[in-house]
Design a protein around this nucleic acid. Structure first.
Length: 1173
RNA sequence: GCGCGUAUAGCUCAGUUGGCUAGAGCGCAGCUCUGAUAAAGCUGAGGUCCUUGGUUCGAAUCCAAGUACGCGCACCA
């Protein structure tokens, strides 16, 4: 036989211990060396476009596995559309500018503050900023390069910058886009100028958390990391009402330094306020606040969550006395033996508009029109939203609405518009001018009398405040108070709320569809958000509806230079420059120094222009831009007009509805005057968690770097926190894991899910492939042999080909809908249930020499099997290529190398140069698919029946009877009787169609789904009638479609009921729907002997394996036993045993030099000895 | 505080227009099969379908309230 095997075109395939990551690296090399990607691009050049827009990745660190999720989607859809013949751009992007890069560079250089940055070159802030900005650029280049290499490793096909020469290019000339490129920055200039021409850019003031030590404002994100429980000294302060002598508002604050800047007092008009008299003075206090136990509740939600979610008592620090109630403070104030008196109550609404005397009205800052200091006042005046009053003159009771509660403080809120965000808002609404007391170091500025030069964060400052208040007899009480307070996450000092000037884009009135906001909404309505379950459009609309104006400035160094030039004498007079050319034309100073530099600090700051209205010089504001401007403009700055809009974008959605998605939508709306969308389809996906469902954090050690997952392996804590080593997962397993995931749900990533994905899909496919190649190689299958016409192939071949077409249809539909998960789940099902566990398992014999005689007889059965499996594997490679490009390429190269004869022309050299499969309708045979499903179900029921009878499959049984429940059942039994016999190990299959003899005993139940609609309220009654009847009688009658119990004219029909069955004596049976299967459980001596023989075969096979023999080795076999029945069985079935075990000779004596095994067959001793011949 | 969403087995999740004994994968226990397979098959244990009320002949499913969790927004005087 062996000498008849022709040279095989297929390489042998290892199925054990395959190093997939190593194969992947080899494929990368193959792609490079053969220019596969370039060949793909050449194939598609000039064809219809499919436009993908890459969301820029922050080039600040190596990639983590969370980056790989989105990049896998991006590559998979790119590859799919490439394989369906579309022209693609293949441009990937890096996000380069912003504080996160600055922070990392500060760490690298050991810098701790802005002052450190500006002193990098001692005494030369400008040179320092230059050096710092250069360091940021260098870091971006460094990690962009690392991320490029890692993306290549993932298999992400893009036009990458690979060599040193590529990276030596200016960012504008590289293949990837970089948001720090001049093109990107100047396009944003154009955008901002367009906004300005519509009158939307304005300078505003905003109160933000500020670190006095670092001299920097902190964003919300940064702030959330720094909350700590701290103790502050809080104060109750009385504010005398000007028109009601002897009456006072009582306010409370935890930040006494802000009292210097008090302008208003806010009440909730809905609340009731008590008038409480003590020591001759009357105080207003909210009724609910007065007797409140302040140690209960009160604390905010985050406190409660931090305390385990249940706790209702306030978090407190040890050693700090618990809070007294406000009533208690009044009692103390009253003094020994005295008490307070409630003398009346009023609604908050009745207090509105009352004027009061502030705590520090003598300070110059309190007596400056439009607020303080002067530059604040200037902007306030210019805005037109404030009246010309001083703070001291503005002191009135204002409406704080629901934000004023009775659970904190007194129900009357001290309002300092220069020291709090909500205060600032109230101030603007009520004409209270902002008073801003501190500079960028947190120190009181001139105009604050005794406080000038004091640090607001210093506890000593609060003591000075108290002294001053005491002297003026304004201090009612002080107390030690514990609360969560934000701190700088870098230097840990307490943050201060500080009024700073920032630049905004006016988005139009909130909670309307007007203005810029409304224009964006109209665009949002034209794009598709996926997956549907996320309600992405509603989320985006919700953000657009509620968002405030867009703050575009940040007081930092590395980023977009905001193109805003301000008059040197008038901070309210500014211009927005729209391009480099415009700036050159307008420049009156500094152009020569700037020329040749990118538009970044410090060089662009040198350029001055002339104000045509005043003739004054105008200077650029020192602020840099919000980084979402950088990312949002890329739909314009990177895509030529003929590629817009993008067909597809995909990013992790948490946060992006207010970040990238928003920025894209807003900027494209502005640039196109609402005519264009930035994208047509947006696929959002959730977050990568660790394999136990916890967020990945570097500090917790549970985050996984991309390179560890791809090639290196690593260590994570297991469920109990102990270190757990894991090996490399590889790119394809990762990619499969990502693609099969529901994008709406968080993904638990780790070695365990990876092992599952590998076992569930990758290895199954690989083993089918290995099976094919190894047998084809041994057997000399020649793929060049003319194809056996499909019509002449076995049913099971045509079945597999038919179901393959269904998979192809599913695949194309799924990719077109951007629902790759649907494809992956269908592919898993196909490979597992159809290919591996059915086709390959059922057809093993056909691939080996056993059936050679069938082909010899002209049936071409084996050839058909090889050709069928070959076709299916090739198509599967192409179907899965977008998702697992490495695995499919390895398989393709071997499977398609069968093209050696006829030469390479038959198959492209790479699976990625093929077209995506298209379903061949002529191969679809719905009846056949239904029949095969039916036979599988029948076999499964038969197995369950054997199981119920506890007779294992090795024991042959006489008969299985199938009572068919459908046409498919009937056809299945006729078409595949041998299949049923073989799988169930029975001698005979009998088909019974209803009406039939009582194979199983019937009981009947009402089908409520059908009957409910028919009988309605009388269903219970009908159910009782049905239950009371004799089942056998019933069955017969029903089968005649009659029912013996008329119910007021309504009859019960066959469709109204379902049957249940039980097996008869000597049989075991089960039922599913209308299909019943029963096996004869009676074992005859003949059957018994056959079963024993099968056991013997199995033990001999094990012995062969243990002896280390190859599948193809022939043996001499000795079988020795004392048991007569076993010996008889062996004698009877020797022919079968010999054939199965490749025994060429039976030995009478146990040979001395043989491999020997002693086993027990059904309780009988057996000695096996075998020897290779 | 406001808004949106979720709550089903130990874990991760399906469950269609309301309808039969509520399912899958993983894990666990047992059995079985195996010369392509790191596999695979079968069976079993394991459920207050978050709680309460309502609609209905009938609710995991629809409605209301509550609870818990997640997300977004606003804030923390």
């Amino acid at each position: 036989m062996a000498d008849a095997v022709p040279a095989s075109p297929f390489a042998r395939v290892e199925t054990q211990g395959v190093d997939f990551p190593a194969l992947e690296r080899a494929i990368l090399k193959f792609w490079d060396e053969h220019g596969i990607f370039d060949k793909r691009k050449a194939l598609n050049a000039g064809k219809p476009k499919w436009s993908f827009l890459d969301g820029p990745i922050t080039a600040n660190n190596p990639m983590g596995v969370h980056h790989a999720w989105g990049r896998t989607y991006k590559d998979a859809y790119n590859r799919y559309f490439a394989m369906t013949g579309r022209d693609l751009r293949y441009q990937q992007g890096f996000d380069c500018q912003g504080l996160w890069v600055e922070v990392e560079v500060e760490k690298e250089l050991g810098l701790k503050s802005k002052r450190d940055i500006e002193n990098l070159v001692p005494g030369d802030p400008e040179a320092s900023v230059d050096r710092f900005v250069q360091a940021c650029k260098d870091r971006v280049d460094k990690y962009a390069r690392v991320q490029t290499d890692q993306s290549v490793r993932l298999g992400y096909w893009m036009n990458w910058d690979r060599g040193d020469a590529d990276w030596a290019e200016r960012p504008d000339d590289r293949k990837s886009y970089l948001t720090m490129s001049e093109r990107n920055n100047y396009t944003i200039w154009a955008f901002l100028q367009k906004c300005h021409r519509k009158g939307l850019v304005y300078r505003g003031y905003d109160v933000m958390p500020w670190c006095g030590r670092c001299g920097v404002g902190l964003s919300e994100m940064e702030m959330k990391e720094g909350y700590k429980y701290v103790e502050h000294k809080a104060a109750f302060v009385r504010l005398p009402l000007k028109d009601r002598p002897g009456e006072n508002l009582l306010v409370w604050t935890t930040t006494p330094w802000t009292l210097t800047s008090n302008v208003g007092a806010a009440v909730n008009p809905e609340l009731t306020y008590l008038k409480v008299r003590v020591k001759g003075e009357v105080y207003y206090v909210a009724n609910g606040a007065f007797k409140l136990n302040r140690m209960e509740g009160g604390g905010d939600e985050e406190d409660a969550a931090a305390a385990g979610g249940k706790k209702k008592t306030r978090e407190w620090l040890p050693g700090v006395p618990h809070l007294s109630s406000i009533e208690q403070h009044f009692k103390v104030r009253a003094g020994k033996g005295e008490t307070y008196e409630v003398v009346g109550e009023v609604k908050g609404a009745d207090l509105l508009g009352l004027a009061y005397a502030g705590p520090f009205d003598a300070l110059p800052a309190q007596n400056h029109e439009y607020g303080f200091p002067e530059d604040v006042a200037k902007v306030t005046r210019q805005s037109g939203k404030w009246p010309a009053v001083t703070a001291a003159a503005a002191h009135t009771v204002i409406d704080g609405g629901k934000d004023v509660t009775e659970t904190e403080g007194t129900g009357i809120v001290h309002t300092a518009p220069g020291c709090g965000a909500i205060d600032y808002g109230w101030g603007r609404a009520n004409g209270l001018p902002p008073v801003a007391p501190i500079d960028d170091a947190g120190v009181f500025v001139e105009g604050f009398g005794p406080f000038v030069g004091m640090n607001a964060a210093d506890p000593a400052t609060a003591e000075v405040v108290f002294e001053e208040l005491k002297t003026a007899d304004r201090l009612f009480a002080t107390e030690r108070y514990v609360h969560r307070y934000p701190h700088c996450w870098r230097c840990k000092t307490e943050l201060l709320y500080r009024l700073v000037d920032e630049w905004f884009i006016n988005m139009g009135p909130r909670n309307t569809e007007d203005g810029f906001r409304g224009d964006i909404m109209k665009v949002v309505d034209r794009v598709t958000f996926l997956p549907e379950s996320l309600n992405g459009r509603a989320r985006e609309r919700d953000w657009l509806w509620n968002m405030g104006d867009w703050m575009i400035s940040k007081k930092r160094y590395w980023g977009l230079a905001l193109p805003i030039w301000v008059d040197e004498k008038d901070p309210t007079d500014f211009e927005v420059i729209g391009s480099r050319e415009e700036l050159r034309e307008r420049a009156v100073e500094g152009w020569a120094e700037f020329d040749g530099h990118t538009p970044h600090r410090p060089w662009v700051d040198k350029v001055k222009i002339r104000n045509p209205r005043t003739g004054n010089l105008m200077s650029r504001i020192p602020d840099v831009g919000n980084p979402w401007l950088d990312a949002g403009i890329v739909a314009y700055s990177t895509m030529p007009a003929d590629w817009r809009p993008a067909d597809f974008i995909t990013e992790s959605f948490p946060g992006q509805f207010r970040n990238w998605f928003y920025a894209l939508l807003a900027m494209t709306t502005m640039m196109s005057d609402g005519r264009e969308e930035p994208f047509r389809n947006l696929l959002g996906f959730a977050t990568v968690l660790d394999q136990y469902g916890k967020p990945m954090h570097k500090a917790d050690g549970n985050s996984i770097e991309f390179i560890a997952a791809a090639d290196k392996g690593g260590t994570i804590p297991d469920a109990t926190g102990k270190p757990l080593q894991y090996g490399p997962i590889g790119a394809d397993v990762m990619r499969w894991l990502y693609c099969r995931q529901n994008p709406a749900n968080n993904l638990n990533f780790g070695p365990t899910p990876a092992d599952e994905a590998r076992a569930k899909f990758i290895l199954k496919l690989w083993n089918c492939y290995g099976f094919f190649c190894n047998y084809a190689a041994l057997d000399g299958f020649d793929p060049g042999t003319p194809q056996v016409p499909v019509a002449e192939r076995a049913d099971i071949d045509r079945w597999l080909l038919s179901d393959l077409q269904l998979l192809i249809t599913t695949a194309r539909g799924a990719f077109e809908r951007y629902d790759v998960m649907a494809f992956c789940l269908a592919a898993e099902e196909f490979v597992d249930a159809k290919l591996s566990n059915w086709y390959v398992r059922r057809n093993r014999d056909r691939f080996w020499s056993k059936n050679a005689d069938l082909d010899a007889a002209g049936r071409k059965d084996k050839l058909a099997a090889y050709q069928t499996l070959h076709t299916v594997l090739l198509d599967l490679c192409r179907l899965c290529a977008p998702v697992v490009p490495f695995l499919t390429e390895v398989m393709w190269k071997n499977l398609a190398s069968g093209g050696r004869q006829p030469p390479e022309s038959r198959f492209p050299e790479s699976v990625h140069l093929t077209d995506y499969p298209a379903a061949d309708e002529s191969l679809v045979d719905a009846d056949l698919s239904a029949d095969m499903a039916a036979v599988q179900r029948i076999i499964s029921l038969g197995g369950a029946a054997r199981n119920a009878a506890k007779v294992n499959v090795r024991r042959p049984l006489a008969e299985v009877r199938v009572r068919t429940g459908s046409d498919a059942d009937r056809r299945a039994v006729d078409r595949f009787p041998d299949l049923i016999r073989d799988e169930l190990n029975v001698k005979r299959v009998t088909r019974l169609d209803p009406p039939a003899a009582d194979l199983l005993r019937a009981t009947v139940k009402l089908n409520k789904k059908v009957a409910g609609g028919k009988f309605g309220p009388r269903l219970k009654e009908v159910e009782q009638v049905v239950a009371g009847l004799d089942a056998r009688q019933y069955d017969t009658n029903l089968l005649r479609d009659l029912f013996p119990h008329p119910l007021d004219g309504m009859s019960i029909d066959l469709g109204d009921v379902t049957f249940e069955y039980k097996a008869l004596e000597g049989w075991a049976g089960v039922v599913d729907g209308n299909t019943q299967v029963a096996v004869d459980t009676r074992v005859t001596p003949e059957l018994k002997a056959e079963g024993l023989a099968r056991d013997v075969v199995r033990f001999v096979q094990n012995a062969r394996k243990d002896a280390g023999l190859d599948v193809a080795d022939r043996i001499e076999l000795f079988l020795g036993t004392d048991d007569a029945e076993l010996r008889a069985a062996i004698n009877t079935h020797w022919g079968t045993i010999a054939a199965e075990t490749q025994a060429v000779r039976r030995l009478d004596q146990q040979p001395a030099d043989a491999f020997t095994a002693a086993v027990t067959v059904d309780g009988r001793p057996l000695t096996i000895a075998l020897r290779k011949v």
